[in-house]
Amino acid sequence: MRFSIYRYNPETDAAPSMQDFDLPDADVAPGMMLLDALRLIKVSDETLSFRHSCGEGVCGSDAMNINGRNGLACITPLASLKQPIEIRPVPGMPVIRDLVVDMSQFYHQYRAIQPYLIVHDPEPEVEYLQTPEQRDELDGLYECILCGCCSTACPSFWWNPDKFRGPAALLQAYRFLADSRDQATAERLEALEGPYRLFRCHTVMNCVDVCPKGLNPTKAIGKIKKLMLKHLI
């Protein structure tokens, strides 16, 4: 099985390059995921760097660009990929080394939407209660693992990563707007106003296309716009 993997060590390399690797077919077990193959390759070349942790699509560490498409290596079956399998870091982010990118800007945008409940009333002595219907509103929003596949596939995020919040952060912005327990709707909407933070989204929908958890940031962004309209009227 043939691989072409992006290699770059900013401390020693003048420029990034693609390196070919061959994995003997005997090593490829049926049902094997891309991450398993990368770990085998790392046995033969321990300088190859990539992030990974849980290995089952829950932690979101191993987002990478696989044959031109962002995804999680740990839940991408090898059998589904055309050879040579071309692996690059997620696009638009500063490369630290090989497939490891600096996610600071992505996390900065996430923190900026205040990803926590804001309550102005005195805290209740019991739990915050929600009806099952109110809880259902959060489905399709809370499952985000912040792997960054969506934001790094978004052209608007490539051009303005410092000002546009990006699909991942906006999905979470709506997650808290939709939460019946949150009391900061007006402030949150106000914080998304302006030409950049929300409105750089041009519904390209790359985010929906690549999300490994099957979430729909574009739909959430549309719902934020609808909420803004409701607040205007």
């Binding site: 998304l192 106003e193 302006g194 933070r197 716009k225």
Partner: peptide, 9 residues
């Protein structure tokens, strides 16, 4: 017309 108003227009 910045963000929302431009979009609405």
């Amino acid at each position: 017309a910045s963000g929302f108003r431009a979009w609405l227009l």
